[in-house]
Design a protein around this nucleic acid. Structure first.
Lengths: 194, 194
DNA sequence: GAGTAGTCTGAACCGCGGTTCAGTTTTGGA
DNA sequence: TCCAAAACTGAACCGCGGTTCAGACTACTC
């Protein structure tokens, strides 16, 4: 609902009817509208990161993990939700905390894989992992923002190209390709094995 | 008021009292709240660009103009207003138009100076001016976003450094320094002359 | 100095939507 | 089968704030 109507315009009645229930029933579970919306935002973003973390564990090299990190964050998440969270965080202290937590988690994750890749001799070791993470994350934010707002110059395909190119430039190294369908891997491994 | 309270929370009464008048007086000049807020956003951003364009005209090289462009947009504008405009543009068609117009103006301006610098042999000519503009503008958006949200890792000083460095990397060339106080130039010129 | 267009005021109107509340239904356990 | 806690409903309450409106006040013209 937040993604559709925006934080400001999302009424308890909207959430209730989407859930097939009534406004008072929603308020039975949440103290008030504020808490409902705040928890919804945090929950949604956390869920995205959780599922991403899980998929990352299946990959063997830092380069692959970094590529998945960015490809997933281009394709999957609901950027409008992020935008709502940003604006919300300007004035709501709980929103500010939520954003800070999520953002730190995100940049820490990037930096970690950069560091691992450097330790493995896979990436240019002269770059500061924290700075790479900050630059890459910020550029992605900016580009995805344009794309989400329907900028014709940042169509999905272009967003993908520009992001990966820029990450590689910040990183000082090239990221390996991924299999398009992660689910195929099992089959391929089996085929190789047999 | 939009910058302080946010678009959603800005009431006609807020605007009225700030203007030293009454809500009906505000509605005498604007059809309704929607029009008021939309015009306020467009007006404010236009004014920033107008004043910037004026200051740019005083500089003689594309490199100086590009640097001023970014330094001014780091220091001057009210980024919270941009954020409000972004979120607003997700759902309001007039907001969408306003944003598109302002964004195009901004990127066109950057690209123009990039092109001029390339033609003058000042910058690396192998870069696509449109792409440089898009990347630089997007990264600035992303970084300024973090800074505005109070990210401790993107303090004002760091925001400035990172932005200029990144612009130079996208551009493939170094940007010249500017005099800190443009108003001093007259005095300096007079001093030199005397 | 009378008239008129332009500007504004105070008061009221009114719908929207969050929240409350008094009860009703449902659930799960003894 | 019964009971108590949990989950929910329908209706009403209530403040907020955008908008309207009937008149006043101002400024400017003839």
């Amino acid at each position: 609902m937040i993604s559709e109507r925006g934080m400001a315009a999302t009424r308890i009645a909207d959430v209730a009817s989407r859930a097939g229930t009534s406004p008072p029933a929603v308020l039975y579970w949440f103290d008030d509208r504020d808490q409902l919306l705040n928890e919804a935002l945090g929950f949604s973003e956390d869920r995205f990161y959780d599922s991403l973390t899980e998929r990352l564990a299946a990959l063997s090299t830092p380069g692959e993990r970094l590529r998945l990190l960015f490809e997933a964050s281009i394709a999957d998440p609901d950027w409008t939700l992020w935008m709502e969270l940003w604006t919300h965080a300007l004035r709501d202290s709980q929103g500010q905390e939520t954003r800070r937590r999520l953002d730190e988690r995100w940049r820490r994750e990037i930096a970690m894989h950069v560091r691992e890749g450097q330790a493995a001799g896979e990436f240019d070791s002269s770059r500061d992992p924290g700075e790479v993470a900050l630059l890459a994350a910020s550029l992605l934010d900016g580009l995805a923002l344009q794309a989400t707002l329907g900028d014709p110059e940042v169509a999905p395909e272009r967003l993908h190209e520009l992001t990966i190119e820029a990450v590689e430039r910040f990183l000082g190294s090239v990221l390996p390709e991924l299999d398009d369908e992660p689910d195929n891997r099992e089959r391929e491994v089996l085929a190789e094995g047999g």
